[in-house]
Simulated scan of single mutants.
Amino acid sequence: MEYRITHIAPLFINDFPKDFILNQKKEISNKFKFKFRLLDGDRNIYFEGLSTKNDSFEPLDCLGSEFGCADLQFFENGKYVSL
Rank of each mutant, 00 (worst) to 15 (best):
R43S: 13
P10R: 07
L39G: 00
I28L: 09
N44G: 08
F75W: 12
H7T: 06
N54S: 13
L60N: 00
T52W: 02
N77V: 11
E27F: 09
G41W: 03
S82F: 01
H7I: 06
V81W: 03
E58M: 11
F32S: 03
P59V: 01
A9F: 03
N54V: 06
I45Q: 04
D71M: 04
F67G: 01
L50C: 10
Y46M: 03
K18F: 15
G68W: 02
F47D: 00
N23T: 08
E48A: 04
N77I: 09
S56I: 07
E27Q: 14
F67P: 00
L50S: 04
R37F: 08
S29W: 05
G49D: 02
E76Q: 14
G49Y: 01
D19Q: 13
P10F: 06
D61T: 11
C62G: 13
Q73R: 10
L39W: 01
F74K: 05
L60S: 03
F47I: 02
K18A: 14
F32N: 06
N77C: 10
E27R: 12
C62R: 15
F75I: 04
K18H: 15
D42G: 08
F32R: 01
I13C: 05
I28Y: 08
N77H: 12
I45P: 01
D19P: 01
D42N: 14
G49E: 02
N44F: 14
K31Q: 14
N23A: 10
F57N: 15
P17G: 09
N77K: 15
P10N: 13
T52R: 08
D40M: 03
R37S: 07
N14A: 13
K25S: 09
D15N: 13
K35T: 10
I21V: 11
D61C: 06
G68M: 02
S56L: 10
I21K: 03
L50H: 05
D15V: 05
N30A: 15
F36G: 00
Y46H: 03
S56V: 09
L63K: 01
F16T: 09
D61N: 13
I8L: 02
Y46E: 00
G64A: 06
N54C: 13
